[in-house]
């Protein structure tokens, strides 16, 4: 009797402990890291993808359906980045709290102006995103508007901790602005640096640091480059020398490596998101590391 009573008390305690935390389902690691900054110990964060996975092509795995089912808030890049898998998860999990239109459904891309909105929508242009380029996390200036929106939504979903979310947002904003000033200064020498990218996933980074994209290895977004495509890019790189070939950690290494070897320039693997390499473990380190890597190839 005593034992079973203890068990019941334990179970109640456990379920109370589980209920206390707001469950956040983050599609990409950068939003998971941001949710931890703003939510602190009041939230439990599940990240659907790792930095080694292509966020365009994640499989709608059963484990993700189960985790979305229990989420109180979903935060994703949006702008059709997750169109190949998130709609299935939302439909199969049928979780009323995180359906589009609810406070628990947050698209980060809705908080910032998007670049590279295609003037022409045609699948012959590759896997284009109609609303603009969704890879907004490569510019740290985009993080603050998303953080503000997240704090506001968290306060709506979990009003009892609204003050805590506000406090953490203020603290995060202050630290982030200091970091931004530091990064802007560090990034000065990179202005005008010519680069080649493997996928058009860096437009916000280029915009932030003033990098000059000379060419893209993928002939169309999402289409792997053929040898003819690579040869054409090589021709351009020989005419307009560049400092590096940039790819994300999750991308196929062969096109970038081929180009790097032929053109005699370094291949630069940038983390792209939190956890992209072993020295980009949180949001601050992500940009520290990105700048460090870019500066390392920017020798005259």
């Amino acid at each position: 009797m005593k034992k079973s009573l203890l068990f019941v008390v334990l179970l109640l305690g456990l379920s109370a402990g589980v209920q206390a935390a707001t469950r956040i389902f983050a599609c990409e690691p950068e939003w998971g890291a941001l949710a931890r900054e703003i939510g602190g110990e009041d939230v439990r964060v599940t990240v659907a993808t790792t930095a080694l996975q292509d966020p365009h092509h994640v499989q709608a795995r059963p484990s993700l359906i189960a985790r979305l089912r229990r989420a109180d808030l979903l935060i994703c890049s949006g702008a059709d980045l997750e169109i190949g898998w998130l709609p299935v998860l939302l439909r199969r999990a049928a979780n009323a709290r995180v359906q589009p239109g609810q406070p628990g459904y947050l698209e980060a891309a809705s908080a910032v102006p998007l670049l590279e909105r295609p003037a022409r929508l045609d699948r012959a242009q590759g896997d284009v995103h109609p609303q603009g380029n969704p890879h907004i996390q490569t510019d740290p200036r985009n993080i603050l508007p998303v953080a503000r929106l997240l704090a506001q939504r968290l306060a709506e979903v979990d009003a009892s901790h609204a003050a805590d979310y506000q406090r953490r947002l203020a603290d995060f904003t202050q630290r982030w602005q200091q970091a931004l000033a530091r990064w802007d200064k560090q990034g000065q020498p990179l202005r005008g640096m010519p680069i080649v990218v493997q996928h058009d996933g860096w437009v916000y980074l280029e915009h932030w640091l003033g990098l000059k994209r000379v060419a893209t290895l993928e002939p169309k977004p999402g289409v792997p480059p053929s040898s003819a495509d690579l040869a054409a890019v090589l021709q351009r790189v020989r005419q307009t020398p560049v400092k590096a070939v940039i790819r994300a950690a999750y991308q196929d290494d062969r096109p970038a490596r081929w180009m790097a070897q032929r053109a005699g320039i370094p291949e630069l693997v940038l983390p792209f998101t939190v956890g992209g390499d072993d020295r980009s473990g949180d949001l601050f380190k992500l940009y520290d590391r990105t700048l460090e890597l870019l500066l390392s190839v920017n020798r005259p």
């Binding site: 080694l52 996975q53 292509d54 092509h57 994640v58 499989q59 991308q251």
Partner: peptide
């Protein structure tokens, strides 16, 4: 289903 590091590309 198998995909190295969950990346089926």
């Amino acid at each position: 289903k198998w995909a190295p590091n969950g990346n089926p590309y």
